[in-house]
Amino acid sequence: MTSTVTSRSLRWARRRQSFARSWAAYRSQRAGMVGLVLLGAVVVLALAAPVLVDQSQLSVTQATGGRMAPPSAEFPLGTDETGRSILALTLWGSRLSLLIGLTATVVAILIGTTVGVTSGHVGGWYGWIALRISDWFMVLPSLVVAIALLAVLGRSMGTTVAVIALVSWPGTTRLVRAQTLTVQARPYLERARALGAGHWHQMTRHVLPNVLPLVLASATLLVPSAILMESSLAWLGLGDPGVVSWGSILNRASSSGAVSAHAWWYLLPPGLAILVVVLAFMMCGRALEAVFNPRLRGER
């Protein structure tokens, strides 16, 4: 009993140590820290949206403002074509955009990691076919696939998440597979095999822990593309009609003629919100990548 406890505590100590090292390396990158702070601010705002702005402000029937009124004291960012506050819409939109972006990424990462680890570890026919299929998905234009699927599956949050996950998993698969093959070749895995470790044990105890840091970095870079994809789909009118996301706000803006009405206050807030969140994720992702991939840090 004691031996397992100590080996576990040892493992945790080692992990804590390597985490501390990574964190120190991350902290030394200014862009990464800026991104992290920006992200934190956006997440706090999204979580606090119900406290800051009452949900009733999103209702078309209870709207109090004028039609596409420019910013005023009552509506700091103006109103939309039904008289709702753009500020309230943008704040509430952040919840949906982040939620869909994160969920789709988690699903994509789960599929990608599973397929990547298993195809790299098991290999053979299964590995070959998995690789071919992920290659095939990677080549297809993602927006076309997403539009086609949403057009036949119908519009809802669930289908949006599923479709975005479906077009984003292959990148992770490739990455994880390559990393798995690298880990696979290391001597301690050979030792584990020689000691009779099963596939499951090898994959979960040896391959996964080594692959996860890279997965984390790539996930951070997948979120912004998921958010962009969601906003594009919602802007095209393929989003869930019942919810407010940044893309759907902009969809309403273009269908109600905000551009020809010169209603810049209608266009800028949701668009800038997308830009800031995507940029923040990219900055974090690039910094993480540099932490886990020393070649990019300039240590050649």
Binding site: P224, L228, S231, S232, W235, G247, L250, A253, S254, A258, V259, S260, H262, W264, L267, L268, P270, G271, I274, L275, V278, L279, M282, M283
Partner: peptide, 23 residues
Amino acid sequence: GLVLYSAPTFWLGMIVILVFARY
């Protein structure tokens, strides 16, 4: 480059229309 890469295409298009065509 990163900032422009982060901008949604459709939104950038709308802003470009607003500025260069409308204003």
